[in-house]
């Protein structure tokens, strides 16, 4: 799939790196080692340089998204209302850190700046569905409900 993305960028230079990475992430959901190697060959750039650039930006992920992609808002309103404890609890429950995916591939955790739902703070979003006014306690139930969900 990376190679298909790259066909859209014939004869470009290193200044096209970020748009290419964004495109790949759009298509594949994340940036794999293989993808970055391919981009490196295409742009004649060492992979370490590409990885350096990509890790500079929060928008790129280096693990595939889980079946349930959990975004936790760490914007001002959510922070004031205790989202840092929610994040801690989430990391503890899922046994992953921010921007990681659980080993079974079920959950991935992403920290986002503000999802624009300050009235619902603290808020998390699971595959785009918002859960309002979450607490370390309520988050447990929410995660449990997704864990026990049958394939839909």
């Amino acid at each position: 799939m990376t190679s298909e993305v790259l066909t859209k960028y014939p004869e470009v230079g290193r200044d096209s790196l970020i748009p290419i990475l964004q495109d790949i992430q759009d298509v594949e959901g994340w940036l794999s080692e293989e993808s970055l190697s391919e981009v490196g060959r295409h742009l004649n750039l060492p992979v370490s340089k590409i990885y350096g650039v990509a890790t500079f930006y929060n928008q790129f992920r280096f693990q595939p998204k889980g079946k349930y992609h959990v975004q936790i808002c760490r914007g001002t309103a959510c922070h004031v209302l205790g989202s840092s404890n929610v994040q801690k609890k989430l990391e503890q429950l899922l046994k992953v850190k921010a921007d990681e995916t659980t080993k079974d591939g079920k959950f991935s955790l992403e920290v986002v700046a503000c999802i624009g739902a300050c009235g619902l703070a603290p808020v998390i979003s699971v595959n785009g569905k918002f859960h309002a006014k979450v607490t370390p306690d309520s988050i447990k139930k929410i995660i449990k409900s997704y864990k026990s969900k049958k394939d839909d």
Partner: peptide, 25 residues
């Protein structure tokens, strides 16, 4: 590594106070 050796197997990775010198991935 990059300029003299043309190897560039290490670079700055990450951002801000989490920046480290590391290899790809």
């Amino acid at each position: 590594c990059e300029e003299v050796m043309d190897v560039a197997c290490i670079d700055f990775v990450g951002r801000g106070n989490k920046t480290i010198v590391s290899t790809a991935f």
